[in-house]
């Protein structure tokens, strides 16, 4: 489909929440929020994805 469709994919998860379990997607654990932001912005550039905030300390990198 050219305009719509399920094309979003979660590429990675970056979190400061140590209890976040690793599962089907790569999970990056960060020490603090500053490190999380840095990792997230690096990953977004590397993967051409976008950072989304789940507002519970976890960022997801999503390919649109």
């Amino acid at each position: 489909m050219e305009n719509v469709g399920l094309s979003e994919v979660i590429l990675a998860i970056v979190t400061v929440d140590g209890t976040q379990p690793a599962s089907g997607v790569p999970v990056f654990y960060a020490k603090d929020e500053e490190e999380r932001n840095k990792i997230a912005s690096h990953l977004a550039r590397i993967l051409s994805g976008m950072v989304h905030d789940l507002e519970n300390g976890t960022y997801v990198i999503v390919k649109h």
Binding site: N37, A40, S41, A44, M50, V51, H52, D53, Y59, V60
Partner: peptide, 20 residues
């Protein structure tokens, strides 16, 4: 609104990175 970008009543998208 938190991490959600809004235009008046429209919630456009979730922008995660604070720099963005």
């Amino acid at each position: 609104q938190g991490s959600i970008l809004c235009i008046e009543n429209i919630q456009v998208m979730n922008v995660g990175h604070p720099d963005s």
